[in-house]
Design a protein around this nucleic acid. Structure first.
Length: 472
DNA sequence: ATGTGC
């Protein structure tokens, strides 16, 4: 795999058969995947073979190996030119994403409150594999409402306030969800998980704004230095996982019918406008709404704890997904085209002036929420005008060691006491979970964010530091 | 990521 340096933060994989477009990796030289021991660049090249792909197969600075597509990948296909949609381009955790909430508290008030808050959250936040949820749904009919209405339905039912919807991607729900394309098995798995964190890299953190880089934008987002925040990172749990599994299987079988040849079965795909493509997009949208409702219910549980322990409310800064495909209009080849933009481990980053932004954010751009690895900083960014990858940027630190490698590397060292030694409170994390998520298993999120900024993908707004973490 | 695993 040969990389051509186009500029200090942009490398190209030249197009050669059967690639339809080049690959482009946005990263500093230091952050580039190790070509010898990592197959993610090969995956970037594989994605470039997809029917209808336009411009390039893009990789963000946090790129690493994933199912078919790399995590940290962005690929747009032209809907009007038989462009495809691929479940592997979204990932198993459909609409995994992040929301950030601000408290009416300064970090100076926290030492006296942190233990109470963390104990309250420990009790209030269901987490881990299939271990309960905040919301007990009343049968499939109500789950269908969640899949159709997302956060909007949750708020309608009293789980949140109207303002939450203005600060959620798609005003809390996408409109094209089709619960009829969600299997009974997916429903069974998702039924009891609305309002649950999950495990792996999912977390709820109490954080503080450590540094503000752009005062006017931070103010528009509702952020100030020293402010206490809560970040929630979760997705669509077993429901999204099962939807991905189901539709990959269907698409694998339909490939020959559409004459699609791909170098890796994990890139299974169908034309966006085909029955299989539309079925997947309808089910994917249902999972996207489910994930927003999930984060909304986790928000409500967190609010109850903050109200009771600290007498503080929590305002939503934003909720944005980093695993999703969306039909969007972008200028390409001199005209406006409808493109299916796959973002897998990549965050939508709308620039200032974009019509899809809520009125109070249109001048400053979309809040982009970047969770760091456990115990490290997280970032708030905003979209950059003229960004080079369909209004997308990175999504986090990006793994450099597999879960297995990380577990081996811990060698009995106590990740929990290392966090506590740095005054970060930990609740509910399994020893193994902590080992898999140790910061050494990830790239340096600060370097990732710096590369994304230098590549012109986004602009930095604020850095957040963790005070307490709740994990599965 | 995930009723970690065909």
């Amino acid at each position: 795999m040969e990389l051509v340096e186009e500029s200090p933060y942009r490398f190209r994989i030249d197009q050669r058969d059967p690639m339809r477009v080049p690959g482009v990796v946005f990263a500093s030289r230091a952050l580039l995947p190790d070509i010898a021991g990592d197959r993610s660049l090969e995956q970037v090249a594989n994605v470039a073979t997809l029917p209808g792909i336009v411009e390039a197969s893009y990789a963000m600075p946090d790129v690493h190996w994933g199912y078919g597509f790399p995590i940290g990948g962005v690929a747009a296909t032209d809907v009007g030119a038989d462009g495809v949609v691929s479940p592997g381009g979204v990932g198993f955790d459909i609409s995994c994403g992040v929301r950030l909430l601000t408290a009416d508290l300064d970090r100076t008030a926290l030492p006296a409150l942190l233990t109470g808050l963390m104990d309250g959250l420990d009790h209030a936040i269901p987490r881990g594999m299939s271990k309960g949820a905040v919301w007990q749904l009343d049968g499939r009919a109500q789950l269908d409402e969640v899949m159709r209405g997302g956060s909007r339905y949750a708020v309608e039912r009293g789980h949140g306030v109207e303002r939450d919807l203005y600060r959620c991607e798609d005003y809390g729900a996408v409109t094209d969800a089709d619960p009829g394309q969600v299997s009974e098995r997916a429903v069974q798995r998702g039924q009891g998980q609305v309002g649950s964190l999950g495990s792996g890299n999912h977390f709820l953190e109490v954080q503080a704004v450590d540094e503000v880089y752009d005062e006017p934008v931070a103010t528009a987002f509702g952020l100030r230095a020293g402010q206490v925040c809560v970040m929630i990172h979760s997705g669509s749990r077993g429901l999204g996982h099962q939807i991905c599994t189901d539709h990959v299987r269907v698409m694998e079988r339909s490939m020959t019918r559409y004459g699609i040849e791909i170098p890796d079965r994990q890139l299974a795909c169908s034309p966006v406008s085909s029955p299989e493509g539309r079925a997947y997009l309808g089910a994917m949208a249902a999972a996207a709404n489910y994930a927003r409702a999930n984060r909304q219910l986790l928000t409500e549980a967190t609010r109850r704890v903050f109200e009771q322990v600290a007498g503080s409310g929590l305002d939503l800064v934003y909720d944005v997904s980093h695993n999703l495909a969306k039909i969007e209009t972008h200028g390409y080849d001199g005209t406006q085209r409808r493109l299916c933009v796959h973002r897998k481990g990549a965050t939508r980053a709308l620039p200032p002036g974009h019509p899809d932004l809520p009125a109070d954010l249109i001048e400053v751009g979309q809040p982009v929420l970047i969770p760091g690895s456990m115990g490290t900083a997280s970032y708030v960014l905003t979209g950059a005008a003229g960004g080079p990858a369909f209004a997308s940027t990175c999504h986090g630190a990006g793994r450099v060691r597999s879960r297995k490698q990380a577990t081996r590397a811990v060698h009995g060292q106590d990740v929990r006491s290392q966090l506590e030694a740095r005054n970060i409170a930990v609740r509910g994390a399994s020893r193994r979970g902590l080992a898999e998520e140790m910061p050494e298993a990830y790239k340096d999120v600060s370097a990732v964010v710096e590369s994304a900024e230098r590549a012109g993908l986004c602009r930095p707004v604020a850095r957040l530091l963790p005070l307490g973490v709740v994990k599965g």
